[in-house]
Design a protein around this nucleic acid. Structure first.
Lengths: 328, 328
DNA sequence: ATATAGCATTCGACAAATAGGAGTGCTAAT
DNA sequence: ATTAGCACTCCTATTTGTCGAATGCTATAT
């Protein structure tokens, strides 16, 4: 589609703009392309007609359009080799054999956020399809207890429960034993149903204060099933970008970052490393989101990186790829 | 110190400014004080001399100084009665008997952040002076286990542990039993020491892979002791205040909010509800922080509210007081 | 056919100039 | 003790002008 010089021109514009955040003039590219500014202007007019670059005003330099970034990412960009320094920082995480995978992911995304000055997000796997392995209860006071729920994939969650009336310890024990007998092996998403139809009728006979206990556990399990697990690093980074140098935009973005709904929508379904430029993502048309799935023992989570559209795509992709490699 | 009219004047200036965020002119107060603007100007000059109000430029209206806010808070302000609406919202939390105290606090501060449009912070109690009640281990795979630690105050924490070599299940069990025997009842802050001097020498005899296990548990306990527990609500709220309508300031504040160090420094030592205006707090001289301790079964935490100096002190104090009452 | 030099043109960024208005402080009169 | 009146200060918004960085276009050279 584009000839060699046009390709080179687009590449220069995109990469220059990524570096400087200022519109690129025809003059500034003369040496690089070894021709006069007039020639470059002609080519620029062409690229603009195709829609790959834009002007900010009638006599301004050129800026990549969304389509331009897309073309760059798809056809021009070459993955950038990692510097020794970057590798060194990340090695420290992956060589630490005593780290559980989820901790390794957290740590490495923390580091990537520092290296790149973008915002990173780790969306932990949901425990929806985990199976219940064990329920344990530890009494704290007469009315308060801690319920601990463990799944086969190693998810643990606890919840302090306040009983609405005093319940004798042995009744609590009986209930927990029953749950452990009847509910173990059930997927988390189905626990509520099992509780209601299998456990509830039985404890109604055994246990005096069955209502109170049943409700307490029912609530605890619902919380567990719906718990989401999101970690964000360097949310301030994105605000430092020069394109977000106005309060309105900053407020808009901070708002979106605070919105659990939006952040949860980051979940990636496809394979590989996927890039969503501007309006291609659901967060904000001025941002680019790069995501990839990871797989921990059959459980899937997402790691993502959020930055301005003017993002160092080559660097970022290589970093994420490096992490992906190391996680497997 | 101040006569009646001066007091009334300061009150009007502070409360007007809190509402409008604009300097107050002598003219605008004529009706309220029932005298001419010239008289008010004379009084204003006096208040300014004492340092209670300031001008933003030589011919501008007056703005409360830090000292002015302080005087207002200490001597003029009357607690504002809560509206039925506010009470209603908070009642829903406190009447829910199945909520554990910490959850009730979280929820109510969430609500307060919404009501006031300021930022709220809940600093959970540290588990430093809790005593260990139980350690439990659940194996997930050959190399991975979940360690669960419970304290007498009902704190629970879990940590997934990756063993650097395979360890037979019975050795793990032995170790955990030993820990449960020797370490229970020890304050969390001393667990590491006890582990090192009492447990380590013994398991060295019993257990083959004692090094691996010891390290794993040692790390798990250190994490537990150092874990902090901070919750923030509505951090965006503060950015919406008109006085923070420039990107530099916003970035500064967002940075400070992201800084665990600073946020942890919010911990309140004194009794009652304490107000730290501007330079009186450690976060930012343009902010006011209002804090109060709460007491959960002997464990102390802090709830705090962060807003601009131009804060609705009367409303906020009443709200915090209401919560404090209800928590006890 | 392609590349380039040259030129008019457009527009943003910045500074200077201008006008209007909101305040104040001070003085003199009540 | 209060207030009317007035000169004065400074902010804010708008206008104006200039400079420079770009562009598009046209005519010319290769």
């Amino acid at each position: 589609m584009l000839n060699e010089r046009q390709t080179e021109l687009l590449k220069l514009i995109v990469e220059d703009y990524i570096k400087t955040a200022r519109p690129i003039s025809s003059n500034s590219l003369c040496k690089a392309l070894n021709c006069s500014s007039a020639t470059i202007r002609n080519e620029m007019a062409l690229l603009e007609e195709i829609g790959l670059i834009e002007k900010t005003h009638i006599s301004s330099g050129r800026v990549p359009s969304e389509k331009g970034y897309r073309y760059y990412v798809d056809n021009i960009m070459k993955p950038k080799e990692l510097t020794g320094e970057d590798v060194l920082k990340l090695q420290q995480v992956f060589q630490n054999k005593s780290l559980v995978l989820t901790d390794a992911i957290s740590k490495s995304m923390e580091i990537i956020s520092e290296i790149t000055n973008y915002t990173t997000v780790v969306l932990g796997p949901s425990s929806q399809d985990n199976r219940l392995t064990k329920v344990e209860v530890v009494p704290i006071t007469e009315r308060e207890l801690v319920a601990i729920v463990i799944t086969d994939k190693g998810h643990v969650q606890h919840k302090n429960i306040m009983l609405s009336e005093n319940v004798p310890l042995n009744e609590i024990k009986q209930t927990v034993d029953l749950i452990n007998k009847l509910v173990i092996g059930t997927p988390i998403s189905e626990v509520s149903t099992t509780l209601e139809y299998e456990v509830k009728p039985i404890i109604a006979n055994y246990v005096k204060q069955h209502e109170v206990l049943y409700n307490a556990f029912y609530n605890a399990f619902s919380d567990f099933a719906s718990a989401s697990n999101v970690q964000m690093n360097g949310r301030k980074n994105i605000l430092m970008q020069p394109e977000f140098d106005n309060t309105e935009k900053i407020r808009e973005i901070i708002n979106k970052f605070d919105d659990k709904e939006i952040i949860n929508s980051i979940k990636e379904e496809g394979n590989g490393i996927n890039i969503y430029i501007g309006s291609e993502n659901d967060i904000d048309e001025d941002l680019t989101v790069i995501k990839t799935k990871y797989n921990n023992n059959g459980e899937e989570g997402t790691i993502a990186l959020i930055g301005p559209k003017r993002m160092e795509y080559d660097h970022v992709v290589t970093l994420l790829d490096y992490i992906k490699q190391n996680l497997e």
